[in-house]
Design a protein around this nucleic acid. Sequence first.
DNA 1: GCAGTAAGTGTGAACGCTAACAAAGTAGAA
DNA 2: TTCTACTTTGTTAGCGTTCACACTTACTGC
Lengths: 345, 345
Amino acid sequence: MAAADTDPVTDSRPRRLPRLEDVAELAGVSHQTVSRVVNNHPSVSPGTRGKVEAAIATLGYRRNTAARSLVTRRSQTIGVLGSELSQYGPANTMLGVERAARDAGYFVSVAALREVSRDAILDAVRHFLDQSVDGIVVIVPHLETLAALAELPIGVPVVAVGSNGNDTVGGVKVDQRRGAELAVEHLIGQGHVRIGHIAGPQDWIDAVARADGWRAALEAAGLAADLVIEGDWSAGSGYGIGRQLAANPRATALFVGNDQMALGVLRALNEAGIRVPQDVSVVGFDDQPEAGYFCPPLTVVRQDFEELGRRCMDMMLAELGGTPGPRTLVVEPELVLRSSTAPPG
Amino acid sequence: MAAADTDPVTDSRPRRLPRLEDVAELAGVSHQTVSRVVNNHPSVSPGTRGKVEAAIATLGYRRNTAARSLVTRRSQTIGVLGSELSQYGPANTMLGVERAARDAGYFVSVAALREVSRDAILDAVRHFLDQSVDGIVVIVPHLETLAALAELPIGVPVVAVGSNGNDTVGGVKVDQRRGAELAVEHLIGQGHVRIGHIAGPQDWIDAVARADGWRAALEAAGLAADLVIEGDWSAGSGYGIGRQLAANPRATALFVGNDQMALGVLRALNEAGIRVPQDVSVVGFDDQPEAGYFCPPLTVVRQDFEELGRRCMDMMLAELGGTPGPRTLVVEPELVLRSSTAPPG
DNA sequence: GCAGTAAGTGTGAACGCTAACAAAGTAGAA
DNA sequence: TTCTACTTTGTTAGCGTTCACACTTACTGC
């Protein structure tokens, strides 16, 4: 009885998945013809194609990726190397990449960095090389990352989100500097002259660019750019900085490096009885879905992360297709006005 | 000149990556011995092992995954099928899975669902089967998902987050019902007798379980469970519901299905001049990092999503190792008290 | 001293696919 | 008719691994 279940003779279940050869036999053609059908090769007569397709359907044939990769030396897989993937921005960028990749017939392999260090990055890259990915998308917006990537001869195209492209690594980014300028110009337009900046950690590419934009916009207007405090992107750090500022108010407007820190700032000001926007205006950065429901709803610079991810993949596909395009792609940010900003006084 | 760059004779760069055979030749052994070294097979003498390892290091040999998969019929890849992967919970669950998987030597392939539908799910599963993944982790907390999965003979182990396990699909979940009970019991303990529930969409497994827990806790205390309004998880829907309730107050405490909706509720109440927690207490669910910085900081039921992801992978590994353990794994939630709850009146 | 066992190593054949080439058939032009 | 060119199909040889097995050598126990 137990034997009947596994006896190769009496067992009617297929012992293994069907392969080209099985399809070929059923369709009465050679395995190569089946391969041609599967790969949409043009030189197959309509009649043959029909027979083969029928056989494929009958057997439920699926092409074996490993065998195909072995001979083509391509895995149809893109590695996504990311950190902070539970954050709104990186997560959505990854989703944009995933979508574009799957649409293009690629698999997406993910490696998340526990901590951002040279070793962790090299380890993840090796992981991907072991998997023989066809290309790597890097969503690790640290300056250090780019340096680490330059160390290893990777051998496949690399596209880094947030960076400028160079000859070894393609770059796709939202124009952070421009975003910061939009925010600050808006505040200046409302009549603010003391505009502070709560910055992200300065080893992050985007944090530096936002601080630069803030400074540039102020200087262009002849205003002082002397109030900048560095946080760590978290609501907690925003809260701490907010308390400091509440105790010793030095500005009528704050340009905050991201929405989470802005949330912390809002809460600290609220606790201290400082009204937003009547006493202080606040602008965030990212536009995560919750930003419109903060107290008060937050004026923000919006980044389209999914678009960013898609563009990454566009560049990657161009590279993989052997038709490299521009090495740098820039997505424009947008200012979204809500009620956390108003003229001073 | 151009020829010199590619001429097979004068070009000293390796034409292709080194393989077992190349290592074997350099070490003066057979390719099989090299294979044994690479796979940590015990029956290799220390001397031979040393020679081979040296040759591997010299050539920078890395084993070819495709060839290996072809013969072993295992891809060392786990597919993660997820929706809402930019949300705090699913994203962190995925990260937990990724971490455990990579530690166990597996690659992680991701497919994100654009919309949750039978077709989209089946499409993603087929995508993974095309890639011949060794197992699939499903982070799509819809009732519908489980039904769709049951349709297809998948042929590899499947572990679903948030579900109860059955014979075809393993289940790993945080005890949502218990979490809801913790929240409601806390409110009852503070003296609340009119406790409403703002629920998530009822086609989500977790939303149903939380509503059940809320109802059970109230009924156990002999209180009425008659105020439940369904939202869509978003801050916007929480805001809309909050405005309704502010116009027509019917409870002194609200158990809200997740943190985002709670944010919307807080904002609506704040706008209407209803104080939290003096007039109304609010409890959220998830404990995303921002919850402690809402106005006021939100009392929540915390779920450890990363742990959840790790457990998923534990179950998967047991399954893959041929030693299936329990079909259901439950992680305990925890109540985190902050200042959005207080005794009524 | 000889079988019996174990450890270490090598040989050959898959695994399922694609690339390159060969062969057969078809059609139009000379 | 015959030649050429093209289309369609088949044949063969890998791709780089692991598996099953065979072979050697060394050590055990009688």
